[in-house]
Design a protein around this nucleic acid. Sequence first.
DNA 1: GTCTATATCTCGATAGAC
DNA 2: GTCTATCGAGATATAGAC
Lengths: 186, 186
Amino acid sequence: MKQGEKTKHYILDESNKLFYMNGYSSSSFSNIVNATGLSKGNITYHFKNKQAILEGIIAKRMIEIEASFKQWEEQGSTPKERLMLFCDMIIAEQENIESFGCPMGTLTAEFSKNQPELYALTLPMFSAYRVWLKEQFEELDFSNAEEEAMSLLGKVQGVAMVTHAFKDKAFLHKEMEKIKESFSRL
Amino acid sequence: MKQGEKTKHYILDESNKLFYMNGYSSSSFSNIVNATGLSKGNITYHFKNKQAILEGIIAKRMIEIEASFKQWEEQGSTPKERLMLFCDMIIAEQENIESFGCPMGTLTAEFSKNQPELYALTLPMFSAYRVWLKEQFEELDFSNAEEEAMSLLGKVQGVAMVTHAFKDKAFLHKEMEKIKESFSRL
DNA sequence: GTCTATATCTCGATAGAC
DNA sequence: GTCTATCGAGATATAGAC
Protein backbone atom coordinates (compact mmCIF):
# COMPACT_ATOMS: atom_id res chain seq x y z
CA MET A 1 0.00 0.00 0.00
CA LYS A 2 1.26 3.47 -0.94
CA GLN A 3 1.83 6.11 1.74
CA GLY A 4 -1.18 8.09 0.56
CA GLU A 5 -3.45 5.09 0.87
CA LYS A 6 -2.07 4.32 4.30
CA THR A 7 -2.79 7.84 5.51
CA LYS A 8 -6.27 7.65 4.04
CA HIS A 9 -7.10 4.45 5.90
CA TYR A 10 -5.53 5.81 9.06
CA ILE A 11 -7.78 8.89 8.91
CA LEU A 12 -10.82 6.69 8.27
CA ASP A 13 -10.07 4.37 11.19
CA GLU A 14 -9.45 7.16 13.67
CA SER A 15 -12.53 9.07 12.50
CA ASN A 16 -14.60 5.91 12.71
CA LYS A 17 -13.67 5.49 16.37
CA LEU A 18 -14.36 9.16 17.00
CA PHE A 19 -17.75 9.13 15.27
CA TYR A 20 -18.72 5.97 17.12
CA MET A 21 -17.67 7.22 20.54
CA ASN A 22 -18.87 10.82 20.24
CA GLY A 23 -21.32 10.89 17.37
CA TYR A 24 -20.82 12.34 13.92
CA SER A 25 -22.07 15.90 14.40
CA SER A 26 -20.34 16.22 17.74
CA SER A 27 -17.04 15.27 16.13
CA SER A 28 -15.36 18.28 14.58
CA PHE A 29 -12.45 18.56 12.19
CA SER A 30 -10.31 19.70 15.13
CA ASN A 31 -11.19 16.48 16.95
CA ILE A 32 -9.99 14.51 13.96
CA VAL A 33 -6.81 16.58 13.86
CA ASN A 34 -6.16 15.79 17.52
CA ALA A 35 -7.03 12.11 17.17
CA THR A 36 -4.80 11.56 14.14
CA GLY A 37 -1.99 13.96 14.93
CA LEU A 38 -2.21 15.15 11.32
CA SER A 39 -2.81 18.69 10.15
CA LYS A 40 -6.19 19.89 9.01
CA GLY A 41 -4.75 20.61 5.58
CA ASN A 42 -3.52 17.06 5.22
CA ILE A 43 -6.92 15.67 6.06
CA THR A 44 -8.73 17.85 3.56
CA TYR A 45 -6.15 16.84 0.97
CA HIS A 46 -7.37 13.25 1.32
CA PHE A 47 -11.07 14.01 1.90
CA LYS A 48 -12.77 17.05 0.49
CA ASN A 49 -15.08 17.40 3.49
CA LYS A 50 -16.51 15.70 6.55
CA GLN A 51 -19.17 13.87 4.60
CA ALA A 52 -16.51 12.31 2.37
CA ILE A 53 -14.90 10.86 5.50
CA LEU A 54 -18.24 9.42 6.54
CA GLU A 55 -18.70 7.90 3.10
CA GLY A 56 -15.29 6.26 3.36
CA ILE A 57 -16.11 4.91 6.80
CA ILE A 58 -19.40 3.43 5.66
CA ALA A 59 -17.74 1.84 2.64
CA LYS A 60 -15.26 0.15 4.99
CA ARG A 61 -18.03 -0.93 7.34
CA MET A 62 -20.01 -2.42 4.48
CA ILE A 63 -17.00 -4.53 3.52
CA GLU A 64 -16.71 -5.68 7.14
CA ILE A 65 -20.40 -6.53 7.29
CA GLU A 66 -20.18 -8.60 4.12
CA ALA A 67 -17.10 -10.29 5.56
CA SER A 68 -19.10 -11.24 8.66
CA PHE A 69 -21.78 -12.81 6.51
CA LYS A 70 -19.15 -14.81 4.68
CA GLN A 71 -17.55 -15.93 7.92
CA TRP A 72 -20.87 -16.99 9.45
CA GLU A 73 -21.70 -18.92 6.31
CA GLU A 74 -18.36 -20.71 6.55
CA GLN A 75 -18.62 -21.43 10.26
CA GLY A 76 -22.33 -22.21 10.43
CA SER A 77 -23.61 -25.05 8.31
CA THR A 78 -27.28 -24.42 9.07
CA PRO A 79 -29.28 -21.16 9.19
CA LYS A 80 -29.93 -21.87 12.86
CA GLU A 81 -26.20 -21.96 13.57
CA ARG A 82 -25.67 -18.82 11.51
CA LEU A 83 -28.32 -16.91 13.49
CA MET A 84 -26.53 -18.05 16.64
CA LEU A 85 -23.27 -16.65 15.29
CA PHE A 86 -25.02 -13.37 14.57
CA CYS A 87 -26.15 -13.24 18.21
CA ASP A 88 -22.69 -14.16 19.44
CA MET A 89 -21.29 -11.17 17.57
CA ILE A 90 -23.65 -8.88 19.50
CA ILE A 91 -22.64 -10.50 22.77
CA ALA A 92 -18.97 -10.11 21.92
CA GLU A 93 -19.58 -6.38 21.45
CA GLN A 94 -21.31 -5.94 24.80
CA GLU A 95 -18.66 -3.65 26.30
CA ASN A 96 -18.76 -1.24 23.37
CA ILE A 97 -22.54 -1.37 23.16
CA GLU A 98 -22.85 -0.53 26.83
CA SER A 99 -20.56 2.47 26.39
CA PHE A 100 -21.55 3.73 22.96
CA GLY A 101 -24.59 1.82 21.68
CA CYS A 102 -24.87 -0.01 18.38
CA PRO A 103 -22.41 1.47 15.83
CA MET A 104 -24.96 1.16 13.05
CA GLY A 105 -28.06 2.07 15.04
CA THR A 106 -26.70 5.16 16.73
CA LEU A 107 -25.29 6.51 13.47
CA THR A 108 -28.55 5.92 11.62
CA ALA A 109 -30.56 7.47 14.44
CA GLU A 110 -28.40 10.57 14.27
CA PHE A 111 -29.29 11.17 10.62
CA SER A 112 -32.78 9.76 10.21
CA LYS A 113 -34.64 12.83 11.47
CA ASN A 114 -33.29 15.63 9.38
CA GLN A 115 -30.21 14.72 7.38
CA PRO A 116 -31.66 12.69 4.52
CA GLU A 117 -28.43 12.66 2.54
CA LEU A 118 -26.40 11.14 5.36
CA TYR A 119 -29.31 8.89 6.33
CA ALA A 120 -29.27 7.47 2.79
CA LEU A 121 -25.62 6.57 3.32
CA THR A 122 -26.23 4.61 6.52
CA LEU A 123 -29.44 2.81 5.56
CA PRO A 124 -27.68 0.25 3.30
CA MET A 125 -25.93 -1.15 6.38
CA PHE A 126 -29.30 -1.80 7.98
CA SER A 127 -30.67 -3.23 4.74
CA ALA A 128 -27.72 -5.58 4.37
CA TYR A 129 -28.48 -7.17 7.73
CA ARG A 130 -32.17 -7.23 6.95
CA VAL A 131 -31.60 -9.10 3.70
CA TRP A 132 -29.10 -11.54 5.16
CA LEU A 133 -31.36 -12.34 8.13
CA LYS A 134 -34.31 -12.74 5.79
CA GLU A 135 -32.33 -15.33 3.81
CA GLN A 136 -31.69 -17.31 6.97
CA PHE A 137 -35.38 -17.37 7.87
CA GLU A 138 -36.28 -18.32 4.32
CA GLU A 139 -33.97 -21.31 4.57
CA LEU A 140 -35.82 -22.20 7.74
CA ASP A 141 -39.05 -22.18 5.68
CA PHE A 142 -40.60 -19.21 7.41
CA SER A 143 -43.43 -17.85 5.28
CA ASN A 144 -42.90 -14.42 6.85
CA ALA A 145 -39.11 -14.37 6.62
CA GLU A 146 -38.95 -10.63 5.94
CA GLU A 147 -41.04 -9.86 8.99
CA GLU A 148 -38.96 -12.19 11.16
CA ALA A 149 -35.81 -10.48 9.97
CA MET A 150 -37.10 -7.03 10.84
CA SER A 151 -38.41 -8.29 14.14
CA LEU A 152 -35.00 -9.67 15.07
CA LEU A 153 -33.28 -6.49 13.95
CA GLY A 154 -35.69 -4.56 16.14
CA LYS A 155 -35.07 -6.77 19.15
CA VAL A 156 -31.33 -6.35 18.84
CA GLN A 157 -31.58 -2.59 18.36
CA GLY A 158 -33.84 -2.35 21.39
CA VAL A 159 -31.51 -4.40 23.52
CA ALA A 160 -28.56 -2.28 22.42
CA MET A 161 -30.46 0.92 23.09
CA VAL A 162 -31.57 -0.01 26.60
CA THR A 163 -28.16 -1.53 27.42
CA HIS A 164 -26.57 1.78 26.48
CA ALA A 165 -29.19 3.95 28.16
CA PHE A 166 -28.96 2.12 31.49
CA LYS A 167 -25.27 1.18 31.16
CA ASP A 168 -26.16 -2.42 31.85
CA LYS A 169 -24.32 -4.97 29.75
CA ALA A 170 -25.63 -7.80 31.93
CA PHE A 171 -29.04 -6.99 30.49
CA LEU A 172 -27.67 -7.38 26.97
CA HIS A 173 -26.19 -10.73 27.84
CA LYS A 174 -29.41 -12.07 29.32
CA GLU A 175 -31.58 -10.83 26.48
CA MET A 176 -29.31 -12.18 23.76
CA GLU A 177 -29.20 -15.56 25.48
CA LYS A 178 -33.00 -15.56 25.53
CA ILE A 179 -33.03 -14.89 21.80
CA LYS A 180 -30.49 -17.65 21.18
CA GLU A 181 -32.62 -20.01 23.23
CA SER A 182 -35.65 -19.19 21.11
CA PHE A 183 -33.59 -20.11 18.04
CA SER A 184 -32.48 -23.39 19.58
CA ARG A 185 -36.14 -24.42 19.70
CA LEU A 186 -36.53 -23.94 15.95
CA MET B 1 -52.13 32.35 33.77
CA LYS B 2 -50.05 35.53 33.49
CA GLN B 3 -48.78 36.68 30.10
CA GLY B 4 -45.21 35.78 31.08
CA GLU B 5 -46.22 32.23 31.99
CA LYS B 6 -48.17 31.90 28.77
CA THR B 7 -45.14 32.95 26.71
CA LYS B 8 -42.97 30.56 28.67
CA HIS B 9 -45.21 27.58 27.96
CA TYR B 10 -45.56 28.67 24.35
CA ILE B 11 -41.78 28.66 23.93
CA LEU B 12 -41.55 25.26 25.60
CA ASP B 13 -44.23 23.71 23.40
CA GLU B 14 -42.78 25.03 20.15
CA SER B 15 -39.24 24.02 21.17
CA ASN B 16 -40.47 20.59 22.20
CA LYS B 17 -41.89 20.02 18.71
CA LEU B 18 -38.70 21.35 17.17
CA PHE B 19 -36.42 19.19 19.32
CA TYR B 20 -38.53 16.13 18.61
CA MET B 21 -38.68 16.66 14.87
CA ASN B 22 -35.10 17.83 14.29
CA GLY B 23 -33.16 16.78 17.34
CA TYR B 24 -31.84 19.00 20.13
CA SER B 25 -28.38 19.88 18.82
CA SER B 26 -29.66 20.42 15.30
CA SER B 27 -32.18 22.92 16.62
CA SER B 28 -30.64 26.37 17.00
CA PHE B 29 -31.84 29.47 18.75
CA SER B 30 -32.66 30.91 15.33
CA ASN B 31 -34.91 27.92 14.65
CA ILE B 32 -36.76 28.63 17.88
CA VAL B 33 -37.05 32.28 16.91
CA ASN B 34 -38.59 31.30 13.58
CA ALA B 35 -40.89 28.67 15.08
CA THR B 36 -42.23 30.97 17.78
CA GLY B 37 -42.17 34.28 15.94
CA LEU B 38 -40.59 35.80 19.04
CA SER B 39 -37.27 37.60 19.25
CA LYS B 40 -34.15 35.96 20.51
CA GLY B 41 -33.99 38.51 23.32
CA ASN B 42 -37.46 37.60 24.47
CA ILE B 43 -36.60 33.93 24.58
CA THR B 44 -33.44 34.44 26.61
CA TYR B 45 -35.45 36.63 28.96
CA HIS B 46 -37.57 33.59 29.82
CA PHE B 47 -34.80 30.96 29.64
CA LYS B 48 -31.19 31.77 30.41
CA ASN B 49 -29.91 29.30 27.80
CA LYS B 50 -30.79 26.40 25.56
CA GLN B 51 -30.32 23.83 28.30
CA ALA B 52 -32.87 25.66 30.47
CA ILE B 53 -35.41 25.22 27.66
CA LEU B 54 -34.65 21.51 27.56
CA GLU B 55 -35.07 21.30 31.33
CA GLY B 56 -38.47 22.96 31.05
CA ILE B 57 -39.50 20.57 28.30
CA ILE B 58 -38.49 17.52 30.28
CA ALA B 59 -40.30 18.80 33.36
CA LYS B 60 -43.47 19.11 31.27
CA ARG B 61 -42.95 15.66 29.76
CA MET B 62 -42.49 14.11 33.19
CA ILE B 63 -45.82 15.56 34.25
CA GLU B 64 -47.43 14.09 31.13
CA ILE B 65 -45.83 10.70 31.78
CA GLU B 66 -47.14 10.63 35.35
CA ALA B 67 -50.55 11.66 34.02
CA SER B 68 -50.51 8.66 31.65
CA PHE B 69 -49.77 6.33 34.53
CA LYS B 70 -52.67 7.80 36.47
CA GLN B 71 -54.99 7.47 33.48
CA TRP B 72 -54.00 3.85 32.83
CA GLU B 73 -54.54 3.04 36.46
CA GLU B 74 -58.01 4.53 36.30
CA GLN B 75 -58.93 2.86 33.01
CA GLY B 76 -57.29 -0.50 33.61
CA SER B 77 -58.40 -2.45 36.62
CA THR B 78 -55.75 -5.19 36.25
CA PRO B 79 -52.02 -4.95 35.48
CA LYS B 80 -52.71 -6.92 32.32
CA GLU B 81 -55.17 -4.29 31.12
CA ARG B 82 -52.76 -1.52 32.08
CA LEU B 83 -49.95 -3.08 30.05
CA MET B 84 -52.36 -3.23 27.13
CA LEU B 85 -53.09 0.48 27.53
CA PHE B 86 -49.36 1.16 27.51
CA CYS B 87 -49.09 -0.71 24.19
CA ASP B 88 -52.10 1.12 22.79
CA MET B 89 -50.39 4.42 23.51
CA ILE B 90 -47.42 3.31 21.36
CA ILE B 91 -49.76 2.24 18.57
CA ALA B 92 -51.60 5.57 18.75
CA GLU B 93 -48.26 7.31 18.20
CA GLN B 94 -47.32 5.25 15.14
CA GLU B 95 -47.38 8.16 12.71
CA ASN B 96 -45.03 10.27 14.79
CA ILE B 97 -42.79 7.33 15.58
CA GLU B 98 -42.47 6.49 11.90
CA SER B 99 -41.46 10.07 11.12
CA PHE B 100 -39.38 10.99 14.15
CA GLY B 101 -38.83 7.94 16.35
CA CYS B 102 -39.61 7.65 20.04
CA PRO B 103 -39.60 11.13 21.65
CA MET B 104 -37.89 9.78 24.74
CA GLY B 105 -35.56 7.30 23.05
CA THR B 106 -34.22 9.60 20.37
CA LEU B 107 -33.58 12.40 22.85
CA THR B 108 -31.79 10.08 25.25
CA ALA B 109 -29.75 8.56 22.43
CA GLU B 110 -28.64 12.02 21.39
CA PHE B 111 -27.10 12.72 24.80
CA SER B 112 -26.01 9.34 26.09
CA LYS B 113 -22.66 9.24 24.29
CA ASN B 114 -21.01 12.45 25.31
CA GLN B 115 -23.32 14.91 27.00
CA PRO B 116 -23.60 13.49 30.50
CA GLU B 117 -25.31 16.54 31.93
CA LEU B 118 -28.15 16.46 29.38
CA TYR B 119 -28.26 12.67 29.54
CA ALA B 120 -28.88 12.93 33.28
CA LEU B 121 -31.89 15.12 32.51
CA THR B 122 -33.50 12.61 30.14
CA LEU B 123 -32.80 9.39 32.04
CA PRO B 124 -35.54 9.99 34.65
CA MET B 125 -38.14 9.67 31.89
CA PHE B 126 -36.81 6.23 31.05
CA SER B 127 -36.62 5.30 34.71
CA ALA B 128 -40.19 6.39 35.32
CA TYR B 129 -41.44 3.93 32.70
CA ARG B 130 -39.10 1.26 34.00
CA VAL B 131 -40.44 1.60 37.55
CA TRP B 132 -44.08 1.74 36.48
CA LEU B 133 -43.74 -1.31 34.24
CA LYS B 134 -41.93 -3.16 36.99
CA GLU B 135 -44.84 -2.49 39.32
CA GLN B 136 -47.24 -4.01 36.80
CA PHE B 137 -45.14 -7.17 36.51
CA GLU B 138 -44.82 -7.36 40.28
CA GLU B 139 -48.59 -7.32 40.58
CA LEU B 140 -48.60 -10.19 38.11
CA ASP B 141 -46.32 -12.07 40.52
CA PHE B 142 -43.31 -12.12 38.25
CA SER B 143 -40.22 -12.96 40.27
CA ASN B 144 -38.11 -11.09 37.73
CA ALA B 145 -40.36 -8.03 37.38
CA GLU B 146 -37.46 -5.63 36.91
CA GLU B 147 -36.01 -7.71 34.10
CA GLU B 148 -39.40 -8.04 32.42
CA ALA B 149 -39.84 -4.27 32.60
CA MET B 150 -36.48 -3.61 30.97
CA SER B 151 -37.14 -6.28 28.40
CA LEU B 152 -40.44 -4.67 27.42
CA LEU B 153 -38.85 -1.22 27.32
CA GLY B 154 -36.20 -2.66 25.02
CA LYS B 155 -38.72 -4.29 22.73
CA VAL B 156 -40.65 -1.06 22.37
CA GLN B 157 -37.50 0.99 21.78
CA GLY B 158 -36.36 -1.50 19.15
CA VAL B 159 -39.70 -1.46 17.39
CA ALA B 160 -39.70 2.35 17.41
CA MET B 161 -36.14 2.45 16.12
CA VAL B 162 -36.70 0.07 13.22
CA THR B 163 -40.07 1.63 12.39
CA HIS B 164 -38.37 4.98 12.12
CA ALA B 165 -35.30 3.67 10.26
CA PHE B 166 -37.36 1.87 7.61
CA LYS B 167 -40.29 4.33 7.67
CA ASP B 168 -42.66 1.41 8.16
CA LYS B 169 -45.45 2.02 10.63
CA ALA B 170 -47.16 -1.21 9.57
CA PHE B 171 -44.24 -3.00 11.20
CA LEU B 172 -44.86 -1.13 14.43
CA HIS B 173 -48.50 -2.09 14.37
CA LYS B 174 -47.79 -5.79 13.82
CA GLU B 175 -45.07 -5.96 16.47
CA MET B 176 -47.12 -4.17 19.09
CA GLU B 177 -50.07 -6.46 18.44
CA LYS B 178 -47.75 -9.43 18.94
CA ILE B 179 -46.66 -7.99 22.28
CA LYS B 180 -50.27 -7.39 23.30
CA GLU B 181 -51.10 -10.96 22.36
CA SER B 182 -48.29 -12.26 24.55
CA PHE B 183 -49.82 -10.28 27.42
CA SER B 184 -53.26 -11.71 26.76
CA ARG B 185 -51.84 -15.16 27.47
CA LEU B 186 -50.68 -14.12 30.94
C1' DG C 1 1.89 14.77 0.46
C1' DT C 2 1.99 17.66 4.40
C1' DC C 3 1.91 21.84 6.58
C1' DT C 4 0.36 26.91 8.29
C1' DA C 5 -2.63 30.67 7.81
C1' DT C 6 -6.87 32.65 6.88
C1' DA C 7 -11.73 33.49 5.31
C1' DT C 8 -16.52 33.04 6.26
C1' DC C 9 -20.36 31.41 8.57
C1' DT C 10 -23.40 30.13 12.40
C1' DC C 11 -23.84 29.21 16.94
C1' DG C 12 -25.02 30.51 21.91
C1' DA C 13 -24.87 34.32 24.86
C1' DT C 14 -25.02 39.26 26.35
C1' DA C 15 -26.04 44.38 26.58
C1' DG C 16 -29.03 47.86 26.46
C1' DA C 17 -33.15 50.63 24.29
C1' DC C 18 -38.07 50.94 24.74
C1' DG D 1 -41.88 41.89 28.88
C1' DT D 2 -40.20 42.43 24.26
C1' DC D 3 -37.18 44.11 21.05
C1' DT D 4 -32.51 45.20 18.17
C1' DA D 5 -27.62 45.04 17.96
C1' DT D 6 -23.39 42.94 18.80
C1' DC D 7 -19.72 39.88 20.80
C1' DG D 8 -16.62 35.93 20.94
C1' DA D 9 -16.02 31.01 20.16
C1' DG D 10 -15.80 27.31 17.22
C1' DA D 11 -17.25 25.20 12.96
C1' DT D 12 -16.25 24.07 7.90
C1' DA D 13 -13.74 25.20 4.04
C1' DT D 14 -10.00 27.30 1.19
C1' DA D 15 -5.39 29.27 -0.28
C1' DG D 16 -0.88 28.83 -0.71
C1' DA D 17 4.08 27.76 1.18
C1' DC D 18 7.29 23.94 1.47
